[in-house]
């Protein structure tokens, strides 16, 4: 179980997270939606202390870290319980696909090389890249690179995988393959917190939706409620705008044809 209690974060004078509380149960997939600048990526990065919160607690699997007193060792322990998938993939460029996946297993988890290799191959197969196991990141498409990013996170068998806009940097035709892999992993019962702009995907894959705006949680709940009957004005407006954009896109396409 992952729990965030009163997470606050400011950059300079600007308070970007105004005390966020969130509970994610084991095996749950939670999507965080919201307009850009709402603080959702910052919140995700506070969970593994890539950003250190100014205030609040992060609890992962009974391991509690207080943002104010957290020392290096605690942060390291916390990070070993989590894994992250980045918008820009952030693969290790000098390592092949399999080496990228094995790195954490060998260096952080101290697994023997052969065990790590076997495990890495299994995960790589899961994301459909068996044939690319010995390729370097530059030889892969964006979609393939992101699938390696997912494999690298998945191999560590973390309590939770944090996905930070995993498809935002991808060409539209490559988005689907990545979403499909995420969906497959979700179905296996891996706990995930996803920051995304793919509203329909979030609807499809999530057990729980959190809608954020201006550094606070505006509304949260199960997808059917949030999408079909949002209570808050800001949530309604957000979905209305998203729908309008999609309609515009469609009508533009129709016009173009």
């Amino acid at each position: 179980m992952i729990q965030l209690r009163n997470i606050q974060k400011s950059f300079g004078n600007q308070l970007v997270l105004k005390g966020i509380d969130l509970t994610v149960n084991k095996g749950e997939v939670v999507s965080i939606l919201g307009p850009s600048g709402s603080g959702k990526t910052t919140l995700l990065r506070c969970i593994n202390f890539l950003e250190r919160p100014n205030e609040g607690q992060v609890i992962v699997d009974d391991f509690k870290v207080n943002s104010k007193q957290a020392n290096k060792k605690e942060i390291l322990t916390l990070r070993k319980k989590t894994a992250m998938v980045f918008q820009q993939y952030n693969l290790f460029k000098h390592k092949t696909v399999i080496e990228n996946v094995m790195e954490g297993l060998i260096i952080v988890q101290k697994q023997p090389k052969e065990t790590a290799r076997k495990l890495a191959m299994e995960v790589i197969e899961k994301v459909g890249l068996t044939e690319k196991a010995n390729a370097y990141p530059v030889q892969l498409s964006g979609g393939q690179q992101q699938r390696v990013g997912i494999a690298r996170a998945l191999a560590l068998n973390p309590e939770v995988i944090l996905l930070d806009e995993p498809t935002s940097a991808l060409d539209p035709e490559l988005v689907f393959e990545v979403l499909e892999v995420i969906k497959r992993i979700a179905d296996e019962g891996i706990t995930m917190i996803i920051v995304t702009h793919e509203v329909s995907f979030a609807k499809d894959v999530s057990d729980y939706i959190v809608f954020m705006d201006q550094g606070e949680v505006v509304e949260e709940g199960i997808p059917t409620v949030i999408f079909n009957n949002p209570k808050e004005e800001r949530t309604k407006r957000f979905f209305k705008r998203i729908n309008r954009e999609e309609d515009n896109l469609e009508s533009n396409l129709t016009n173009a044809i």
């Binding site: 890539l50 894994a83 980045f86 820009q88 954490g104 260096i107 690298r152 560590l156």
Partner: peptide, 23 residues
């Protein structure tokens, strides 16, 4: 070297020295 790789190294639980030496 892209800063993102530093973050990726931290995110999989590496310490500063491992990140520097390995990545």
């Amino acid at each position: 070297v892209e800063k993102g790789q530093t973050e990726a190294a931290y995110s999989i639980g590496m310490n500063e020295k491992q990140m520097m030496v390995r990545i």
